[in-house]
Amino acid sequence: MPEPRVVLYAPSSTAVPEVSRPVTAWRRLWDNATLRKTVIIVALALAWEGYARILDNPLLFPTLTDTLGAVVDHVRDGSLPARTWTSLRVLVVGFGSGVVLAAILTVVAINTRIGTDILETLTAMFNPLPAIALLPLALIWFGLGMGSLVFVLTHSVLWAVALNTHAGFLGVSQTQRMVGRNYELRGLRYVFLILIPAAFPSILTGLKIGWAFAWRTLIAAELVFGVSSGQGGLGWFIFENRNVLDIPAVFAGLLTVIVIGLAVENLVFRTIERRTIRRWGVQA
């Protein structure tokens, strides 16, 4: 029977062809998401300007330049920043209280079975209920002003965040739970050191959805009544200017809403994503 033989190869003496090469500059530019999105926004702006010029009816659809002019005017006289500030303040309070309540509900839910039942029942009941539908009731309870706005905002944020956080907690792998118990982590330490970071992708999704709901609800609620301690927010700014048919100012208000939404998404959430879930490799 023949013995197995090993035939050895000497390492190649000629130069090995390139193992890796840099990608082209054009490709690298196109890989930059910010740049790609800027291109999209510039294209949309050009389309807006072009269409408005063809239409030539500033009462129906002002041009981008008119709108930007209105933005500059209202920033100069201080009304737009003041209105934006009012809206953002209410927004932060409402969003914050919604998130805190959601955190309490889900922590109770993850630790007790009755808590889970409570959370599931409440979410099933209230999540489909539009926040705006609660506004008439809120006005009776809390009167005209910040209290009512915060109430409807909290409602709009709470269920979306709680639902996503709870789903995230339930999705934490059995292995990671066992690792946490192996480390003798119990109660809140277990929640904060294992469950929350492990469920962070879902929690972040919940926060993003909650943020969008809150922003929408706020502007809509301010369109119904804008006055809070003598001064309205962005929604009221839009409503007021529509009443005096200052359509470029209406567009300026809408543009501000959009710009703030874009800024929060791209600066705040994108930064959190980059520093957390992308770095951890739990989301592409």
Binding site: S173, T175, V179, R181, N182, E184, I194, W280
Partner: peptide, 19 residues
């Protein structure tokens, strides 16, 4: 109950905390 006097090494790769 589980305790750190008995450390587990699991089969699953996700036993390391990704964060």
């Amino acid at each position: 109950g589980a305790g750190a006097d008995r450390m587990m090494v699991f089969q699953e790769f996700d036993q390391l905390l990704p964060w």
